[in-house]
Nucleic acid binder design. Structure first.
Length: 297
DNA sequence: CGATCCACCTGTCGGC
DNA sequence: TGCCGACAGGTGGATC
């Protein structure tokens, strides 16, 4: 489920519950997810106040008042949900609807806000590709998993010149280059296809071929940079708006509401005005790519 | 170094 | 209905 826009949506949903609250109790229901939980996982969280909930690429960062940072990744199927109120007080229908999922509730944070309100935040992850690790105080940027990450596709940082410099001389297809977290951090399989469609570029085209000359970025690089930023910004906006009247912070509604231009639309008509092409699915580095052969070159 | 595969898990869906 | 294979939003690590 989660690429950068979904993780950002989750962050915004959890932020008001976490920030300023104290972690009164942590329930850890298994020894590992993708990786073993760090030593003293529960003990190091218990009693701490949360100062901030941040995000880098697809990682959530829970900052604690002693400087420790909990790094959380959702993997493919991870989600968080907020259960308001301190104790088991879930209406029957709601309970029944969710009970099936509870087998994959792996961690529960019991929180108390400065005003005394109690909340539970539950991490659920059926496939267990997600994980939680600590970054020691002051060492977040140097953490092995974060140190090598590329530029965020949010804001204005990713412009044509930056993207051209990153892709220059790369003999790898655009699809693979865009997925490479060391170049741009946060794009996943869905939004790479979407961005390439928006830019009118083939996922098979070699990344280096759009760079242009040094100091003079190609028009295609500028177009792609814009498309990436717009796709991500639109998706965050969609997730954010859907979250407003939604209880759960799992980002799923944002996804359901999204109608993708190419992803998952094999055989369907291209939605570019006047194109008339048919969306095709190919496999690149073992993963599906969707694009329109008629208007993406 | 870079590119490619595999592994890690469970759930779902389409075809037979 | 049930069974079986293909496939799913990510990424660290092994291998070439």
């Amino acid at each position: 489920m989660p690429e950068l826009p979904e993780v950002e949506t989750v962050r915004r949903g959890l932020q008001p519950v976490f920030e300023g609250s104290t972690i009164e109790r942590v329930e850890q229901r298994r020894p590992d997810l993708r990786f073993p939980f760090p030593a003293s996982f529960v003990e190091r969280l218990t009693g701490r106040r949360v100062t901030a909930l941040g995000r880098r690429a697809k990682y959530l960062t829970l900052h604690l008042d002693d400087g420790l940072v909990l790094i959380s990744h959702l993997g493919m199927s991870g989600s968080y949900r907020i259960d308001a109120g301190g104790e088991e007080s879930i209406p029957g229908a709601f309970h029944a609807e969710r009970s099936k999922d509870r087998a994959h509730d792996h961690v529960t944070f019991h929180l108390r806000s400065p005003l005394g309100t109690q909340n539970r935040v539950v991490f659920n992850d059926p496939r267990r590709f997600g994980f939680m690790l600590f970054a020691e105080p002051g060492l977040l940027d140097q953490h092995k998993l974060l140190a090598g990450l590329g530029v965020e596709p949010t804001g204005n940082r990713l412009d044509g010149e930056t993207l051209a410099a990153l892709f220059r001389d790369k003999m790898t297809p655009l699809k693979a280059a865009l997925l490479d977290q060391r170049l741009i951090a946060g794009l996943g399989n869905i939004y790479v296809s979407e961005a390439l469609w928006r830019a009118g570029l083939s996922p098979r085209r070699l990344a280096g071929s759009i760079a242009g000359a040094p100091g003079r970025p190609g028009a295609r690089a500028a177009r792609l940079a814009t498309s990436v930023r717009e796709v991500i910004a639109d998706a965050i906006a969609a997730g954010g708006s859907s979250l407003r009247d939604y209880v759960h912070a799992d980002g799923s509604l944002g996804y359901f509401q999204h109608s993708f231009s190419v992803y998952g639309r094999e055989g369907g008509p291209c939605r570019r005005a006047g194109c008339g092409g048919t969306i095709k699915r190919i496999v690149q580095s073992g993963r599906s790519t969707f694009y329109c052969p008629s208007c993406q070159h």
